[in-house]
């Protein structure tokens, strides 16, 4: 019997299409960009593709604060937005879970921000946060809460805050919906038992609901960290890393170095470092998920 007719070959046959697409669209290009990260490749000079420079690009970026500062900012940004999205999503899910009348409508409204393309979210918040004609300042001024034009996208801290708001607005729904799904799946018995045992609402939540929800939370985190580079669209539209590099994150930096400055070799070296960062984030949440699943399995 040939290999492919054997029962043991079936899973590999089933997985072949998935592995082929991934190899074709991700692995193959990654090998190519790995090669270019060791060259002085400049977009406008095709011949420079063969200009081998060894580790020079890596040595340069790893010793350059102009790389490490955006790197740190990216990590900070991811940490802040993922946690805020989780907390807000949790709050929304808990609230909606308790509603009986009109829940379906609420769920649909809740998913409204998921319909927005990241690039659209960027334009939208750029417009809302415009210091002169933006609706945020206009509203604050007409409510009498502020008498000045707050430079949302220029002030260092506010600009970071503004792009974080845009990102949180776009992605909180994903957390909310996954956590809501978790709440729906939750067995009733432990809750009832806790009530009988005299646990108060907080204790029930802390010791029963939350542990049950954590796998859902880690799934959401993992999905979001797979996808978080989408924030590139938002940041590039809202501030493009400015002013004075105060909102520069890895992806905008890579875009500028690679395309505006044509230094693709250097940009790909940076891209490699950022790829490793993304992979670490995803891997971390995946481990957490596996651990949480085990915990759940053990508890049941």
């Amino acid at each position: 019997m040939p290999f492919w007719r054997r029962e043991s070959a079936t899973p590999f046959l089933l997985l072949t299409p998935a592995m082929l697409t991934m190899a074709f669209v991700v692995v193959f290009p990654l090998v190519f960009s790995m090669y270019t990260s060791f060259t002085g490749f400049r977009l406008t000079k095709p011949a420079s593709l063969y200009d081998w420079v060894g580790f020079r690009n890596y040595a340069r970026i790893l010793s350059d604060p102009e790389f490490w500062i955006p790197f740190g900012r990216t990590v900070l940004f991811l940490t802040v937005v993922l946690n805020v999205e989780f907390l807000l999503g949790l709050g929304i899910a808990l609230l909606i879970n308790r509603i009986t009348w009109g829940q379906r409508t609420l769920r649909t409204i809740m998913m409204f921000p998921m319909m927005f393309s990241p690039i659209l979210v960027g334009f939208m918040f750029k417009f809302l946060f415009n210091d002169n004609i933006g609706i945020v300042n206009n509203a604050l001024q007409s409510l009498g809460l502020s008498d000045g034009a707050i430079p949302w996208l220029v002030d260092g801290k506010l600009a970071f805050f503004s792009i974080a708001i845009a990102e949180v607005w776009m992605s909180t729904s994903v957390f909310a919906i996954l956590l809501l799904a978790g709440l729906f799946a939750m067995p009733r018995d432990p809750l009832e038992a806790a009530k009988v045992d005299g646990c108060n609402a907080w204790q029930t939540f802390r010791h029963i609901t939350l542990p049950f929800l954590m796998p859902f939370a880690y799934i959401a985190m993992a999905i979001r960290s797979l996808d978080v580079a989408r924030a590139y669209d938002i940041v590039t539209v809202m501030t493009d890393g400015g002013p004075a590099g105060r909102t520069e994150i890895l992806w905008t930096l890579i875009g500028r170095v690679g395309y505006d400055n044509s230094r693709m070799g250097m940009a790909n070296a940076m891209a490699y470092v950022s790829t490793i960062l993304s992979i670490l984030f995803t891997w971390y949440f995946y481990r957490k998920l596996v651990a949480a699943r085990r915990y759940m399995g053990g508890a049941q």
Binding site: G148, A149, L153, V154, A244
Partner: peptide, 8 residues
């Protein structure tokens, strides 16, 4: 003398 958002 210029809008605060000028840098953007």
């Amino acid at each position: 003398a210029v809008p605060a958002g000028s840098l953007n």
